[in-house]
Design a protein around this nucleic acid. Structure first.
Lengths: 226, 226
DNA sequence: TTAATTTGTAACAAAATTGTAACATTTAAA
DNA sequence: TTTAAATGTTACAATTTTGTTACAAATTAA
């Protein structure tokens, strides 16, 4: 299996064509014919990429895309817009709404396939390199191991996810709310002070002696990797 | 500056048009007319994105792209191919060589701009710099850091917000009331003289020795960045 | 099952930040 | 020059924020 693709598209004939060809190419595909349902099913399906029509019975593709970009757990979902609207200003409006690529109908399936591969190549760099690195720290997502200065460090599950999160954006300061949202499983509720305790645990695990502190406290804002 | 863009393109007229428009949009641009030189200069210039022609006097765009994708220090450079070759099989060959997007000539600059933004959005999700600058002062809102003359300056939370506020409108004079309203959390009430004290603290933090004063007192009106 | 590990929170300690009062200095007008 | 208003400066107590520890509950492994 190459990945999961979701399609929100009005025209049944296009869905059939695209879905059939994608499946032949090893993708797992699901689809919806309108915007509101599509958005819901999409979240269940958890695709790696979305093919999105502009003109839909209810919610427009543009609206869906803006919606997705605002949703923390989906904001990085790659989107390719498929539409008959081929005017320059349409393309610009489409691209500015946050989609990754824009293809006008009629299109060749082979071009679509090539663009899907290009977008996936760019947006899943982590599937290619499963190691996150910063300073003398290295986190291996596949083997779930962490090294500092070549020496293995043992982390608990939450410590691991926390460090993984920081490593995806080193130096960036995250508020406790942002950390909660990204590191804790959805819909779980813990107090924000809990983070402080986990930060403390992570610090203790990560800070080998004679090594500099890697986690910075930014008073009244949150934490970041140095 | 929005980012650095390098262009390798045969046709001088296109280079001129694109370069001029990109610079108007805040990009730093450099270019080359052929493949071999282009590849060398590119590595010096360290761009955030490459616009690449297919047909070049010596090394073809396809070869350049494959070359880049093999080079460890450049393999993640976003590339948009600009070419007159508009056949389906050309597009596929182009995209498969590792470029991120493919645009056929003639193209509208606005569409190019929208595609550049889309590609940068995807490839630098975090590098979207959110920096405020004035004189030799730089405030990074993402990392919550302030530098003067390249040297980091440590500020308290209120000092940071105060400086951030002034930086959004340098040279503009703000009354104490305006400052209170924008810098202090809503519905909190502090005396206006409190601002004077915070200004004093900010001045002390920001004014490295041998450096000129950056915050101006405007008697009976308020304060401003110089 | 039992034992070990992990987790969230409360409670207290330590540190940093904040607002204000009090006094000093500067500025502009009389 | 004198005077009043505005701003600069300092010190300090109160408050807020973060660090640290301990422990019971929950989860996982044996």
């Amino acid at each position: 299996m190459n990945g999961k693709i979701f399609i929100i598209e009005d025209e049944t004939s296009i869905i059939q064509l695209v879905q059939h060809n994608l499946e032949k190419n090893g993708f797992l595909v699901s689809s919806s014919l309108n915007g509101n349902d599509g958005l819901k099913e999409l979240k269940k399906f958890q695709p790696d990429l979305l093919l999105l029509d502009w003109m839909l019975p209810d919610l427009s593709g543009i609206e869906i895309c803006k919606n997705i970009r605002k949703d923390n757990s989906f904001k990085n979902l790659p989107v390719i817009m498929l539409t008959a609207k081929g005017e320059e200003e349409d393309k610009i409006k489409g691209l500015d709404s946050g989609v990754d690529d824009y293809l006008t109908k009629p299109f060749s399936f082979n071009e679509l396939m090539a663009r899907i591969k290009a977008v996936l190549r760019r947006s899943n760099p982590n599937t290619v390199s499963d190691n996150l690195k910063f300073d003398d720290l290295m986190l291996d997502r596949i083997e779930k191991r962490v090294f500092r200065d070549g020496q293995e460090i043992k982390l608990g599950p939450t410590e691991f996810r926390l460090l993984e999160f920081f490593l995806t954006n080193p130096k960036r300061v995250y508020s406790r709310d942002q950390i909660l949202e990204s590191v804790w499983p959805n819909n779980i509720n813990v107090e924000s002070r809990t983070i402080d305790v986990h930060i403390r645990r992570l610090r203790q695990s990560v800070n080998l002696k004679n090594k500099k502190e890697l986690i910075r406290t930014v008073r009244s804002s949150g934490y970041s990797l140095i």
